[in-house]
Every structure is written in C-alpha cells, then in structure tokens.
C-alpha cells in the first residue's frame, strides 16, 4: 500500500505553501485559460505570454488542493523561458509519467514512445523537480489534480496559436 509520504513529498508541500509565479498577467499580450476539476471544484488559471516561439511569462491563479496547486507552481517554473516546442515535449513527458499504465492515455500521449529510452520521444525530457509528483500515480483519484494545470497550459498554448 502506498503511504501518504509517497504523495505528499516535501517539495510538493513547499510549492503548495510558497507558490511560484502566482498572479495575473495583462491580457493581451498574454492569453488566459481556465481549467476546472468538476469532481472536487478545483480551479486553475494560467496566463501565458509567448514571444518568438518562447514562453517569456507565465503566471498562475485559482484554488485547490496541495497537489493541483503545487503542480501548477512547479509547471510554471518548468516552462518559463523555454520554447513552445520544448514545452509541448515536457507536457507529453509529464502526462506520460502521470498515466497509470506508463503509456499515454488520451490524445496528447498517443504519439508517445513508451519504452523509456527512445531517442526522439518524450522520454529524453528531463523532468527535474516534477519527478516529485510521480507518487501521485499510486493514488489514481488524485491524478486529475496533478494534470489539471498541465491540461490548462495546453489550452493556453492552443489559444495562443489559435
């Protein structure tokens, strides 16, 4: 049985208590996307500003549990300053980690190499601190908490390039 410590890693609680990149950005130039978890009422707001294919500013808002809010905070630090192409690979890698069977579930993961060491898939993406969220998979009910901000980020990217 998975213990609570597998879920509530210290770095997660730190991001929950001291969220990074919290706030709002002016729209435009930024775009805004809102994501809901209809099961528990959690809400994540993502502001994203892209210049020349690079995410120059990202900001998060909303309310929710430690997993959804820390994931949003960690996501914001992971994507800031990176190219959109890199970020899309990171999203795929993160969602791959968050899928119960270790393969992509749903649309964004379908093109994923799932053998873990393929050269051109998501598997070569370094997740860094985001690895701390790996334990969430052992608590399937909470996976949606962890992926909420990432799905909302994809919405914001799609909005940017709509």
């Amino acid at each position: 049985m998975a213990g609570l410590e597998d879920l509530y890693r210290e770095i997660i609680l730190d991001h929950y208590r001291n969220p990074r990149n919290r706030g709002e950005l002016e729209v435009p130039p930024a775009v805004q996307a809102v994501g809901f978890n209809p099961l528990c009422g959690d809400e994540v707001v993502i502001y994203l500003e892209v210049q020349d294919g690079v995410i120059v500013e990202v900001s998060t808002g909303g309310q929710g549990c430690s997993i959804s809010q820390s994931s949003a905070s960690m996501m914001s630090t992971a994507v800031k300053g990176r190219s959109v192409a890199e970020v899309r690979r990171l999203v795929r890698a993160f969602k791959h980690m968050m899928s119960i069977h270790g393969t992509g579930i749903g649309g964004t993961g379908d093109d994923l190499d799932d053998d873990g060491d393929s050269g051109n898939g998501a598997s070569d993406v370094k997740l860094g601190d985001l690895e701390a969220l790996r334990g969430v998979v052992k608590f399937p009910v909470r996976i949606k908490c962890a992926t909420l901000s990432w799905n909302t980020l994809v919405q914001a990217l799609d909005e940017t390039f709509a």
Binding site: G64, C65, I67
Partner: peptide, 12 residues
C-alpha cells in the same frame, strides 16, 4: 487544509 488533502489523510 484543503478538503481533498484532508480526506486523503482520513482515508489512510
């Protein structure tokens, strides 16, 4: 404590 986190510890 967010209710979701609270219920997780209660479930434990």
């Amino acid at each position: 404590i967010h209710p979701h986190d609270l219920s997780q510890v209660l479930d434990d």
